[in-house]
Design a protein around this nucleic acid. Structure first.
Lengths: 204, 204
DNA sequence: CGCATAGTTGACTACGCTCAACCCTGGTGG
DNA sequence: CCACCAGGGTTGAGCGTAGTCAACTATGCG
């Protein structure tokens, strides 16, 4: 992945690409801003939110290491959402227009970007599939299975608050809490602090 | 968009790209098949479904004119779902490997593909946003607004059965029917056969 | 030590699902 | 030309589950 490492970029693009560090709560970009940059998360994580009228905010998605930010604005001139660092984070900042013109000259870069977009599409697709599962404990279990197969491990490390997971799954924290309890009581999982062990019987 | 017209493709790719016609109910590809092709819908529409165990089927998405099919399998060797024509349809069939190597030689094609993927991402994103709206009539209204702004028209032509729309929105047909009734009674919309008129007051 | 926040648990509410019946339309065949 | 049938769409009644609001605990941070 040439795209993911600043040093392997073609010189003219590399010279104008830089790393940005953000602290918890800091905005990377703001809805309505001129969309001059494209980003990839190096460390940490972000949430994307959208404002409708004032005081009407919705959560769009979460981005973690390796995910792109600002991808929906590749061909539009303003950001359609705001990105906020949930923890101290670093991102690679690409000047969008220069990146796009570099893609035309360096096909490998284009291939890298396509791969990143496809990966993101798949992730959105998984989320959408999960939403089609109505019962909270079943949706949660399926989510845990995805995490387990992705990590190839039955021990799942949840490195972020349940609150956030609840939002991503479309639940309230209360419902997530009860769903976890239920899976535990049914013997499908074990919980110890922020680790979850998926039992053999419930993997298939 | 060079990619969308067979005739503007580079010769070696064009020679192996073809149009395929399908009748209602016909399968374009099957989950598990070797993913040798990438498709773009020219006319008609498709549904993508996934089988878990036998007799456990879920609906993934619907694709209409201009949408890509098989995009999730660009970098994998088998299709992760089956595509079925919902009406008589035609698709452009690209040999996947040749398309990928052509992208590296013709940057315009790569740009076109990126645009298609971004558009699809946005569409998935919209669906996901809609799922975050809990009340059926509100989710439906928001959906109608998207359609209206996309078509830039307050008269929405629903060219497909309500049943299908219900699935896409994550409702049962009964719930969709009641939600339509409610919006009508609240004066937000008018219905006449398969057209829906979005009232001015409810656009913003 | 005090405060803010995450997480948990309980009681109640409300909305969408399920199942059933019915209407309506289009298509088919006698 | 009508009788029949299949499927989409609508409406009704009852149920179940997630949301809401509230109280409480635990944890981390100043």
């Amino acid at each position: 992945m040439k795209l993911l490492s600043k040093n392997s970029l073609p010189p003219n693009l590399r010279d104008r690409t830089f790393i940005k560090q953000l602290v918890t709560g800091q905005r990377l970009f703001q809805q309505g801003d001129s969309a001059k940059y494209f980003f990839i998360v190096q460390t940490g994580r972000f949430k994307l939110i959208r404002y409708f009228d004032t005081s009407n905010v919705i959560n769009l998605e979460f981005a973690k290491t390796g995910d792109s930010l600002g991808d929906r604005s590749i061909f539009t001139d303003v950001y359609d959402s705001s990105a906020i660092a949930l923890v101290d984070s670093t991102v690679i900042v690409y000047p969008k227009q220069l990146l796009l013109s570099s893609l035309l000259e360096d096909p490998d870069l284009a291939g890298d970007l396509i791969a990143i977009l496809v990966k993101k599409m798949q992730s959105l697709q998984v989320n959408l599939e999960l939403r089609n599962i109505r019962l909270a404990h079943q949706r949660l279990l399926q989510y845990l299975r995805y995490l387990a197969t992705a990590d190839n491990d039955r021990v799942i490390n949840l490195d972020r608050p349940y609150k956030e997971i609840a939002l991503e799954l479309g639940f309230t924290p209360e419902t997530l809490s009860r769903a976890l309890l239920r899976l535990e009581q049914e013997g499908k999982i074990d919980r110890q602090q922020n680790k979850i062990i998926l039992h053999n019987s419930s993997v298939a």
